[in-house]
């Protein structure tokens, strides 16, 4: 972990900078863990929007927050069954 941090931040970053970035990441995680409802709500709304344009497989859908290096990413894996004709034609 320390190794990763020093690789990401390089040698000349102060310990306060490192603390700040570590905190940023840990807070993103803590906050989503506190409310799984948050991700659930997000998923519901994603389905609603995406379904206007394509037919998706809701059961196979996966929405998570992932931390990599010094970034947090929202990763959504949404299997598409088919595009809707209207959306394509528009």
């Amino acid at each position: 972990m320390l190794d990763l941090i020093s690789r990401v931040f390089g040698r000349d970053h102060s310990s306060a900078d490192i603390a700040r970035e570590r905190l940023r990441l840990v807070l993103v995680h803590d906050r989503t863990n506190v409310s799984p409802q948050f991700l659930e709500a997000l998923k519901e709304e994603l389905i609603e929007v995406i379904s206007r344009y394509m037919e998706i497989e809701e059961e196979g859908m996966d929405v998570t927050l992932q931390t990599a290096e010094n970034q947090v990413a929202l990763v959504a894996n949404i299997p598409v069954r088919r595009m809707k004709r209207a959306a394509v034609g528009r």
């Binding site: 102060s14 310990s15 306060a16 603390a19 700040r20 905190l23 940023r24 807070l27």
Partner: peptide
């Protein structure tokens, strides 16, 4: 320590 960059800054804490 804050000046030296070895302690979190207040502004950063507030923002987070």
């Amino acid at each position: 320590m804050v000046a030296r960059g070895d302690m979190l800054e207040i502004d950063d804490m507030l923002e987070m």
